[in-house]
């Protein structure tokens, strides 16, 4: 499978799982999409630790360090898996994995070259000395515990947006 095909498959499967996926090809485009997604967000948490994120136009007046009370979290995640449409959130590099979980809207940025074709390739690359926490996140938080009726947004975010750069 070519990398392009893997990215297509990732987009398809992530959308099937209930995420909104947008593909962008420039920093300008990224910021434009992002500001659209952040409309209505009152407090935005963004751990600005990667080169991609440093250039982000997070509105300074709405930016917060307090992810517990943020309404949105914008972050670059470490990888994605096409087979399942999953994002890979990792504690490596000092990221709080829980930050993507608490706000109602999780906006994840993933670099196209970090999309793995399948679970085997991802876990083989991860190896037997993984960071403290690796979470595969696939779609928004959900439950079907009452009469198997699907309900979105239990403990985690009820909206998941993904930007593939």
């Amino acid at each position: 499978m070519t990398q392009d095909a893997a990215i297509d498959l990732f987009v398809e499967n992530a959308e099937k799982a209930g995420a909104r996926v947008v593909r962008v090809s420039s920093a300008h485009e990224l910021n434009e999409v992002l500001s659209g997604m952040l409309e209505g967000a009152t407090a935005v948490y963004s751990p600005g630790v990667t080169p991609t994120e440093k250039g982000l136009a997070i509105p300074p007046d709405r930016s917060t360090e307090d992810y517990v009370n943020a309404s949105a979290c914008v972050e670059e995640v470490s990888a994605a898996v096409a087979e399942t449409g999953s994002l890979v959130c990792s504690s490596q590099g000092g990221k709080p994995v829980q930050a993507g979980l608490l706000p109602g809207h999780h906006i994840a940025i993933v670099a196209a070259e970090h999309v793995y074709e399948d679970l085997d390739r991802f876990f083989a690359a991860l190896g037997d000395a993984p960071p403290t926490n690796i979470t595969l996140e696939t779609g928004p938080s959900r439950t079907a515990d009452i009469e198997l009726t699907l309900t979105i947004g239990v403990h985690g975010p009820d909206r998941l947006s993904i930007i593939v750069v």
Binding site: N13, A17, T84, G85, S86, S91, Q92, G93, G94, K95, P96, V97, Q98, A129, P130, P131, T132, N133, I134, T135, L136, E137, T138, G139, P140, S141, R142, G156
Partner: peptide, 21 residues
């Protein structure tokens, strides 16, 4: 489901410089 929404893999305790765990 193809996979559950969250699949967490926890390996040991919070290390120096980490903010999770």
């Amino acid at each position: 489901q193809v996979v559950t929404t969250y699949l967490s893999m926890i390996t040991g305790t919070r290390k120096a410089g980490e903010a999770t765990g």
